[in-house]
Design a protein around this nucleic acid. Structure first.
Lengths: 191, 191
DNA sequence: GGAGCAAACTAACAAGTGTTAGTTGGATTA
DNA sequence: TAATCCAACTAACACTTGTTAGTTTGCTCC
């Protein structure tokens, strides 16, 4: 539990996230992870409790970051469009901080066990809040009266896929990308 | 190779696709698949060659459908915006025909082995064609001069996520959904 | 120099993996 | 009726899985 051990544990989790992104949680073995760390599989257990625990840690910490970010956005007095831009920025920020972890959150959440219900609750709350913002935007005549679910689906799909693109586009800084994306998602692409 | 055997083989592949969607390729065992079919694992091998082969069949057939669809779109004389709408419709159509297979294509393509290179080639060609259409739209002043890669990323992310949403939205018919989506993706959401 | 400890190791485990071989029963065909 | 065949079965295989137990190594601090 001291400083050194925490650091080593974090190294393992970071490495695991990278492998999970490449092949998915189920296809990565503890021996794969150990090899990537330069040690033997059994040695991993000096630092972590189980494979399952690694996944929990990766996913739940990110999910809670999204929840906290959404909380802040919802409580602001900004317009709906402004809030949507803040959501875009939130996704860009969290994703650029932890690209590999985002892959696990997107693709391996169903392999959570004890924490699955908690995760689903966070996700549902997030999507509910997202949709309320869109509905308020429609009521306030900031947004076209399109189906709110389809709007959210479209935006969220793009934002959730960011983890695939950010690593390839290191020439974009997060702020620029967030602005660009907001423009495309909100204003559309046609002239 | 007769009619009955083909049908049974297709049943297995369909069932496999469903399981692969729920837990991912690596987490589904041949015993899981057999149980879902109501038979024993060994019996599966009367119909299929290997687990790997099932994945190949699922993914490659869809990837080729996309390639064929894109070929048709590219050869048309329509405007760029019209072509983009056709791409949206193509995704909606293929996805609604095989929601489960789309999950494998999106999430388990990296577990292809002999066919991995072929798949990647199809995907790259598809994305190249997609981007050319966008660039032509910008040159022709149909589209705002946004970064073509970001535009494609945004559209493609949404379209690739359709497999997650279509099953929940059976009240939308494909044609309506394609129209709605085109509007949001092309015209944006603000007033 | 010896106690304490973090972090690696070897060896082993029970359970689960994809797959093969050979067999059986019931329908179809000659 | 006899021969063929499909599609299921049981049994077994070699290997891989996550994990535990117990041991060793080298560092830090009194």
């Amino acid at each position: 539990m001291n400083q050194k051990s925490e650091t080593r544990k974090e190294e393992i989790i970071t490495t695991a996230a990278k492998l999970f992104k490449e092949k998915g949680y189920s296809a990565v073995t503890m021996r794969d992870l150990a090899t990537a760390m330069g040690i033997k599989a059994a040695s991993l257990y000096n630092h972590i409790n189980s494979k399952q625990d690694i996944l929990n840690t990766i996913i739940i910490s990110i999910a809670e970051a999204f929840t906290a970010g959404m909380e802040t956005i919802i409580q602001s007095e900004d317009s709906s469009i402004e809030k949507l831009k803040q959501i875009v920025a939130l996704h860009v920020k969290i994703t650029s901080n932890n690209t590999n972890g985002m892959a696990s959150l997107n693709n391996d959440w169903m392999h959570l066990e004890e924490q699955l219900d908690y995760y689903l609750q966070l996700r549902n709350d997030y999507e509910d809040n997202f949709q309320v913002i869109i509905q308020q935007g429609i009521v306030a005549n900031e947004l076209k009266p399109n189906n709110p679910e389809i709007i959210m689906f479209s935006m969220l799909s793009t934002l959730r896929s960011l983890y695939l693109w950010l690593p390839k586009k290191e020439d974009f800084n997060p702020a620029d990308l967030a602005m660009n994306l907001s423009e495309i998602l909100i204003d559309g692409i046609n002239t």
